[in-house]
């Protein structure tokens, strides 16, 4: 894991800048559990989850549906409350992290407001935070540049392709410069060609912005290609069964997927998924 250049020196824990020292802990979950009471009985969405995410990391949660990967992300975002264990986000409770607007959240669907054009969609959080108009526009333009959507400011969501809509939603999540970017299968609904392209762009964006990214996916190649750390999860109960360091070089291109190192990591992820899931259904 080579996260040090991405660390913010002003809030670091004192590790020497530039060295391969681990970043500050941003997300720290201990024995986290979450149960839902449903008509069919108690569902253990998360069970005994321990997780550490450090500053500047790109961490992917991977697993079959029902393994709690989205639930875990929603607990981090304070969209769900854990029923047991403890979790801190940037040293505070998730609820406080949310009110401090420490994270930007990218949903599975772009979730753009159809009555706002691209620019107005990206400025939405800034309006809510009460930022003045000039700064709003400046922030929005900068982030639209970052996702290669400059020139599309006046377009409405329905005039954009699915990939462009999701890029606009990423620009919106980044618009207020949060420390943490939480992404819930953002490219799940896109075709593979667009997905590859956006994966490359996302890596570039991650390198440029030095954000800590937590990324939910069910695609093994996507997880290995993007991540510095892969968290393999398993359903019934939702739990972590393996955490794999993905120490591929930082400047990855799509070709890296043919290398032996990439395939070895992908293999380990697949083994983990297989071990945690009996495929009896």
């Amino acid at each position: 894991m080579d996260a040090s250049p991405l660390r913010d020196p002003t809030i670091g824990t004192g590790a020497a800048a530039g060295g391969p020292a681990p970043g500050r802990v941003v997300i720290d979950a201990r024995a986290l559990s979450l149960t839902f009471d449903t008509a069919d009985g108690v569902v253990h969405a998360l069970s005994d989850v321990d997780l550490t995410v450090r500053e500047g990391e790109f961490v992917s949660f991977i697993g079959p549906s029902g393994c709690g990967k989205t639930t875990l992300l929603r607990v981090i975002a304070d969209l769900e409350r854990a029923t047991g264990g403890s979790i801190t986000v940037d040293g505070v409770a998730p609820a406080e992290a949310r009110t401090q607007r420490l994270y930007g959240y990218v949903f599975q669907a772009p979730a753009l407001l159809p009555w706002r054009n691209v620019l107005a969609n990206v400025t939405l959080p800034l309006e809510i935070f009460g930022m003045d108009k000039a700064s709003r526009l400046e922030h929005a333009r900068r982030n639209l540049d970052l996702v290669n959507l400059a020139g599309f400011e006046k377009k409405f969501p329905w005039q954009l392709s699915g990939g462009m809509q999701q890029r606009a939603s990423i620009a919106r999540a980044l618009s207020f410069d949060p420390k943490l970017l939480l992404m819930d299968e953002p490219f799940g609904a896109l075709d593979e060609i667009v997905r590859d392209k956006l994966n490359e762009q996302l890596l570039k964006l991650w390198a440029e912005t030095a954000k800590t990214v937590v990324f939910v996916t069910h695609s093994i190649p996507e997880a290995v290609f993007l991540s510095t750390k892969i968290v393999v999860m398993s359903p019934r109960p939702g739990r972590i069964i393996d955490v794999i360091d993905c120490d591929l070089p930082a400047d990855r291109t799509l070709e890296i997927r043919e290398t032996a190192q990439f395939l070895a990591i992908a293999h380990r992820v697949r083994e983990g998924l297989r071990a945690g899931h009996s495929y009896d259904d």
């Binding site: 975002a77 304070d78 969209l79 949310r98 009110t99 607007r101 994270y103 930007g104 959240y105 949903f107 669907a109 979730a111 407001l113 939405l124 959080p125 809510i128 935070f129």
Partner: peptide, 11 residues
């Protein structure tokens, strides 16, 4: 989704 989105902004 949109209600959750507003919640992430602590709107």
């Amino acid at each position: 989704l949109h209600v959750d989105l507003m919640r992430t902004y602590d709107a």
